[in-house]
Amino acid sequence: MPEGHILEVREVTKRFGGVTAVNHCSLAVQPGKIYGLIGPNGSGKTTLFNCITGLDRRDEGEIRFKDERIDGLKPHQVACRGIGRTFQIIRVFPELTALENLLVVSRKGGLAGNCQRAMELLEFVKLDRLQNEYAGNLSYGQQKLLEFIRVLMTDPELILLDEPAAGVNPTLLNDLLGAIRKLRVQGKTVLIVEHDMKVVMGLCEMVFVLDYGEKIAEGPPEVIQANERVMEAYFGR
């Protein structure tokens, strides 16, 4: 699908009681690019991620992945269609070892057959020496990296990253950013929620801006940075 959209969110609305977390939000994502999703706290970024991955059920609108409707599917069904995600708060499996954290999400072939791929990924983020350590014993940054490669283990076409840079030290951050750029080279599509503007500007080709659950702007980073409405949403009038 070189020209079409890999992900289409159409007029999606999600309410929690009286709060409209996502309000008639539409966005379209083309394959093979890195997208940013930014907005002030509480603007609905994570809720939108949850709607796409099936953790929250949208109230209105539809979500299509590779021309198939995925709103209404269960999270594991969405995942198996090729969407992987990480979480804002780390969600590794603490009492599984680093290696097991990867093996457990593999879907085909025996465990032994997946070991090689898992070890390659651990080497990729320099965690190979900690393969038999419980994930809960790793440092915050290491857990963040482990969660990142756990997504890669399932080989998804679309990867949603929820604040991948938060709490990662500068050296690790550079590795992580390098890894994300490498994904693009491999033809993956990436959608990143991020607060660090430097990261977004340096990484993303297109940026969506949410405010109070509505999309208020979209465009290349440099255009977004100059956008008045965006500045207003972030810094106030």
Partner: peptide
Amino acid sequence: RFGLRLLSIREDEIAAETMGI
């Protein structure tokens, strides 16, 4: 792998589900 999957449910069911289990 079945056993690991069961353990992942104990560890973090939402993460397990989101990872396709």
